[in-house]
Design a protein around this nucleic acid. Structure first.
Lengths: 333, 333
DNA sequence: GAGGGCTACGAAATCGATTACACGGGTGAT
DNA sequence: ATCACCCGTGTAATCGATTTCGTAGCCCTC
């Protein structure tokens, strides 16, 4: 592949001139044409590795995502990728698969690669490597999941309004014994959703006792299914279940179907994360929609602020309730 | 961040020695300990940009995927990412979103970044930039979709056996009027699936007339829905439909539901790509499962062969029929 | 017409690693 | 005892760009 020296020789100028023409920094001479012609003829494309070394900017962002195969994170990654490209950045992606060790591995190699900035939707609360990121001065933005003790802006959705609306929705439909399936205790996201939901229900005089709070070890269908099964085995089973992750909701539906129970007649079901699929289930599931693409965009924008040296604050975008038919009664629309 | 010179000074040796200790190339001296101590104390990590410039190897692979939000490709990307990491490579990802122009854009920047090898599941048949990749000498492996005129190994699934089995399955269940929903004509994947299906059906004396072949402009639910609608409006509607992409199947299901038709009683439905979700639909959909993760692994392995200068052949892995309940009768299991 | 200020450009330093080459000193063979 | 060789190490070239600094030539002004 042709390099800048080849171009310089062909155009009969120095490499400095070639570089200047290409970066539009200073000159505007008639050499310009000769240089551009040489570039064209040789099919020259600057080596961005060399450029990165010299300028200390790689033009790449790192994204470490907790689980790429979870549709919510897929869409998030897609939005991030889109935004990054729009701003001229490439994206180096790492899938932690919810394993903190792997996440740390990735962060390390991304730092070695001198990415210009890092986005992390952290698996677990493992913050050892994240602390190093902060120490290294690499711009960092947390995505979807805040990490205690890490001083970096966090971009995520706020479920308060949506959960308040959901409580009202359930109360209006006469559901008195709600339940919730959450991530393991200690997960900031899970804890928060539980707390907000409980508060919102309290506003309608509805309790959410611990027996109707099911924590799964992982965010997988199997966990959701087991929790639903436990709920159904209670002396007084719930009449509505909120699954705080889309995969867990899938499992919960399986269990209902396996027992021959129908949604919404026998059980109301609500899912956190409005992935397109849920509009195609039978019945379409009432969902809490996080503004996924907006989150991705906002995260990249925030990261760029940091990269360019400006201060950047955390971003909290409202999630909203999307009523469909899984709690009874058609949505107003 | 500390660099190799800092380490050298602290250890009282030359940078060459530091490099050699770290890369295990030649020495085994007692300086070794001093160097390692200095590395530890300074928290030194080699700058891979500099290393890449010098060695002409970036340790990164590029993946241009046709549509990241399509679950089939999500899983494929995930498998590729996994395999790449396992072999010590990072993955720079680009989502073409089925837009050839964007695909070319990505390929260009990936080449500029001097990735060690490139995986492309090509959107459309746009091969201009792919031709350049081949010309540049960058190892290239095509994924899932072959591109005519591009001399590079292609890793994909072979649907022949699965479609033969499907034809038998449908024939055994008494379905005589099958239909197929495919990608636009001219798409190698779509054309091939149509042809194989038609051949397989012919083996059972079943015809697949053009009126029961629906081509959608895009691989989206909306297209699948429209095609299903067209089929249902035929004077003699089909009694079984094969959707050759999972998203199109979703749309097809929507249309059936909207018309109050039931699967499998009123219509048998089969989906290409066995994404986990289809096991959770009601009824669970009979599917043609591509060995997605194996494809990803094989693709990376093939790419590495090329990177290491060995010749590499195309790989064709068999897809298989996963009978569930959407064509009638419970699967044997 | 001399000095000052631009402009356009080249020479060379630089980024941070790897590596070819040179060299000093120890070891083993003869 | 001498020579060849090897081992461990340092010096310096190198990868391909960007950027600082210097300079030649030009125009302008007084």
């Amino acid at each position: 592949m042709a390099n800048i020296k080849d171009v310089a020789e062909r155009a009969g100028v120095s490499v400095a001139t070639v570089s200047r023409v290409l970066n539009g920094n200073s000159p505007v001479a008639e050499t310009r044409e000769r240089v551009l012609a040489a570039v064209r003829e040789l099919g020259y494309r600057p080596n961005s590795v060399a450029r990165a070394l010299r300028t200390a900017r790689t033009g790449a962002l790192g994204l470490v995502i907790s689980d790429l195969t979870n549709p919510f994170f897929t869409e998030l990654a897609d939005a991030v990728e889109d935004a990054a490209r729009g701003l001229g950045y490439s994206l180096v992606i790492g899938n932690a698969g919810e394993r903190p060790a792997q996440q740390d591995d990735y962060i390390r190699t991304l730092l070695d690669r001198r990415i210009d900035g890092l986005l992390v939707s952290s698996a677990g609360t493992g913050s050892a490597m994240l602390r190093e990121v902060v120490a290294s001065g690499t711009p960092l933005v947390l995505l979807d999941r805040a990490v205690p003790g890490i001083d970096a802006p966090c971009v995520r959705a706020d479920g308060r309004t949506a959960l308040t609306d959901l409580a009202a929705h359930l109360a209006a439909l006469g559901r008195r014994r709600p339940a919730i399936i959450v991530a393991p205790a200690g997960t900031p996201t899970g804890d928060e959703r539980l707390e907000l939901f409980r508060d919102a229900l309290a506003g309608h005089g509805i309790a959410l006792p611990d027996e109707r709070v099911g924590a799964t070890p992982d965010l997988q269908p199997s966990g959701g299914r087991r929790m639903m099964s436990d709920f159904l085995d209670l002396p007084e089973p719930p009449d509505a279940v909120l699954a705080t992750d889309n995969l867990m909701a899938l499992g919960a539906m399986d269990e209902l179907r396996a027992r021959g129970l129908r949604v919404p007649d026998d059980m109301a079901l609500v899912v956190y994360d409005d992935v397109p699929w849920f509009a195609h289930t039978d019945p379409p599931l009432t969902a809490i929609a996080q503004p996924t693409r907006d989150l991705g965009r906002a995260a990249v924008r925030t990261l760029l602020e940091r990269i360019e040296g400006r201060p950047a604050a955390s971003v909290l975008l409202p999630a909203r309730l999307v009523p469909r038919r899984s709690c009874g009664e058609a949505p107003a629309r």
